[in-house]
Design a protein around this nucleic acid. Structure first.
Lengths: 231, 231
DNA sequence: CGTTGGGTTGATCCAACTCAAACGACGTGG
DNA sequence: CCACGTCGTTTGAGTTGGATCAACCCAACG
């Protein structure tokens, strides 16, 4: 059940960590199992832990006062999230984290990280890389949301997902396990619109749509929809 | 013309820098003057310099393939921008930076910063604070764009601007110098819609709208529009 | 004064949201 | 094994928030 410190090197941020540091981190942390649908933390909670997802999938999301959700990010195994507590004093999480499947995670005390950061440049640099990546993605998505129409945004969501975690089948087909609702939250639209567009694409032979499942048959055609200038 | 190294301490990131470090930074940098409308750098350029705005105002923006613009951030004096080159290898700017007024800026070689970061924790931490702040703002704005309607988004834009740089007049009135177009790019809408809504608000006595100018007469009412649940 | 650049306002249109109804896959328990 | 409820999905009909387009106004400025 307990995690082998050496496994931590699979986390990008710890790629260059010494064995010793990994041990410190492993010791300064606890394991948490979160069942599907439950939350690691909520927006506004004090950010006392940073998490490393060991198994399962999770998502970062925000809700607005009237309850609508927006997906900010999907988290896969060996990714770190909720790390900003490692930096800021008295930080609170700016988003909630919910398990999409049963999850196992390592919760690292923010204080431990804060201590280490002081004299481990590799750590700061790793975290900054994480942050700049994320900033870039958010900027892109923000621009998309502001300027592109829904069909294109949905295409992009699917492409992003395939890039992150696509399980390739025969002839480049890629299967994704998401509900229409989840996809709509990622694209910033409604589940109805997603359903309609997937149906349309199915008619055109680009995808195969099933219950909690989308199989991408012609990734290239999706790229055309996502990027094409005309139309 | 040349900048006093001690002035650099007005930059958040350098708040805790030693006099010596400031000197290194000042020496490893050059001054650039950019006229209103011109660009510091374009999206995609190699990120060889990080900038510190000394005088004037600038904005970070992205354009999509068909030329539409989205404003990501407004930059005021003594703020740092384009800093991600300090972290990543062979980075390119993920956005363009354009002067809103005639600007003076200090361009710090990315290599200089990269060198310093290695053993100046205060610097990494400062940069990370900058990044986490920005991430939070982007997340918020992303959610707003996805879930709130235009009127509310415009209200938020005005409120954000007043918080950042409002010049208070009598009885809490605040004057902002932006064109409808600029405001629309910040709110993710069109200049027409902004114009209509400002007219509407003017009819209600909330603001006073003029050429390249918005005076906020009743900030509190704007907050109501920005936050209120009903309607 | 004419020109230019910002702003307003009306008319029109359509992409996408909302709401309602019904379908179909799945799991469960009798 | 069937009946039933649940949950994700599909589809249609109706509505609408904002975008788009076009005309015009007005202030600043050379």
């Amino acid at each position: 059940m307990s995690i082998n410190p050496a496994d931590l090197r699979r986390v990008n941020v710890f790629e260059k960590a010494s064995d010793e540091d990994l041990k410190i981190i492993a010791q300064g942390s606890i394991e948490r199992s979160i069942e599907e649908g439950n939350f690691f933390f909520f927006q506004g909670d004090p950010a006392d832990y940073a998490y490393i997802l060991v198994a399962g999938r999770a998502k970062l999301l925000q809700t607005n006062p009237s309850g609508q959700q927006v997906n900010l990010r999907t988290i896969n195994a060996w990714q770190m999230f909720g790390a900003l507590g490692a930096v800021r004093e008295a930080a609170t999480y700016p988003a909630s984290a919910q398990a999409l499947e049963d999850c196992n995670a390592l919760a690292v005390k923010s204080t431990t990280l804060k201590e280490l950061i002081k004299d481990r440049p590799y750590l700061s640099i790793g975290l900054m890389n994480l942050m700049t990546d994320y900033i870039q993605e958010m900027q892109e998505r923000y621009r998309e949301l502001a300027t592109e129409k829904v069909e294109r945004r949905i295409a992009r969501v699917l492409l992003r997902l395939t890039a992150q975690m696509g399980i390739k089948g025969e002839h480049n087909t890629i299967e994704l396990g998401f509900t229409r609702k989840e996809l709509s939250e990622m694209a910033g639209t409604t589940l109805f619109t997603v359903s309609r567009i997937l149906s349309e694409w199915e008619r055109l032979g680009l995808v195969e749509a099933g219950r909690e499942r989308v199989v991408i048959l012609q990734p290239h055609e999706l790229v055309v929809i996502a990027e094409e200038l005309e139309k």
